[in-house]
Write a protein that binds this DNA or RNA. Structure first.
Lengths: 205, 205
DNA sequence: CTTCTATATTGTGACGTTGTGTTCTACTTC
DNA sequence: GAAGTAGAACACAACGTCACAATATAGAAG
């Protein structure tokens, strides 16, 4: 068997995954506190007790679900940044990868965004730190690409970290704006707008 | 009497204000659902019933508090944009006004973002729409300044609305980053970084 | 002008109700 | 018969009510 797991173990993984998916759906629809464990169990088509067999409590379930998504998000974007490509291609790749992962996960992304913030809602503090680190890591990788661009004299000689933060902010703003009003800002158009604004700025030359 | 209010009325306003302040403090410390009405009453030094005399329920109190802050925020920034000033001065004024209002209210912004989760958490939908409109209005005003800049050939001939969104995103990103790590990014430095990046972009000239 | 009492207004916090997280035991399936 | 599943039952926390207490106001009497 390819995976090295018994049938039973695979089964459990699948069940766990179903529960996580159901939970994530509900959480992003209604927010953590407006979702009951019963509702999650029902959505996942398990009995309440079964859910508790997999996750020791609601908090735990929430964390696992968020961690999963955060990991997926982080993986997608670091993948987009790695590889032997020239700097501008890497940046464009990053922007479009972000758009691509953002679109289907917009609602979860909100939760993620809320979590990346600085505040310590005492619960979840551990998770918060964890996700924050992923975010920092991403910024760092982005900054390293920027640094490469600076050394190659493709980018202006500014603090790479600042540039990374700037690009992050630009993409977020456009993606949120796209989310609010999809017709006005079709997202492939947004990609080139972001890239142009980031690279050339707004000042008349 | 200057205000045209009776002493009693002024007194009530003050009490209401105290309650709102206490609520906002607690909400942004712990998040909406982790704060009980009892706790708010205690912090404001009133009995529970008295709070209910002013606000018909917890939701109402939350909304009032958020509305208050949103109004203040919006007013500050529109003020910064209005007035007879040249475009670049207006933009710089906007950025620093935003930094100024952002700093002491960061936790409240997080709260709003985290709690509303953006999308339709059915409760609070009304409030969310309301605040969304304020935001749209702000973007529009910013876009109008950008448009003026374009016509004056100070800014590149791009969609003013896009430029507004871009500036909004840049400032948010830097302010969040500053909040996370105040030493690394003192905010007056950030202001000039934002302005430079926005105007000139990152591409080596 | 002050004092005193009747009335109206405002403040209080114990309590009933409801909803939800978690546990526990009986049942099903393999 | 062992492992897994189910959902009823329990405990608890928080909202919002309400009957009562305290306080303020008004205006009559001294």
């Amino acid at each position: 068997m390819g995976t090295g797991l018994t049938r039973r173990e695979r089964e459990k993984r699948r069940q766990r995954g179903d529960m996580l998916a159901a939970a994530l759906e509900l959480f992003s629809e209604k927010g953590y506190h407006h979702v009951s464990m019963k509702a999650i169990a029902k959505r996942a088509e398990f009995a309440l007790g079964t859910v508790y067999r997999f996750f020791s409590n609601k908090e735990d379930l929430y964390k696992a679900a968020m961690r999963e998504k955060a990991g997926e998000y982080h993986r997608t974007l670091t993948d987009a940044l790695s590889g032997e490509q020239d700097v501008l291609a890497a940046l464009n790749g990053y922007i479009s990868a972000k758009a691509k992962i953002f679109a289907p996960n917009a609602e979860v992304f909100y939760l993620y965004f809320a979590e990346t913030g600085g505040i310590s809602f005492n619960l979840r503090a551990g998770l918060h730190k964890e996700i924050g680190q992923l975010h920092d890591d991403l910024i760092e990788r982005l900054a390293s690409v920027m640094g490469k661009g600076v050394r190659a004299r493709i980018l202006r000689d500014l603090d790479p970290h600042d540039m990374a933060v700037a690009l992050e902010g630009l993409t977020n703003a456009f993606l949120l704006s796209w989310l609010k009003n999809p017709e006005r800002h079709p997202y492939d158009e947004s990609i080139s707008t972001i890239s142009k604004l980031f690279l050339e700025g707004s000042l008349a030359g």
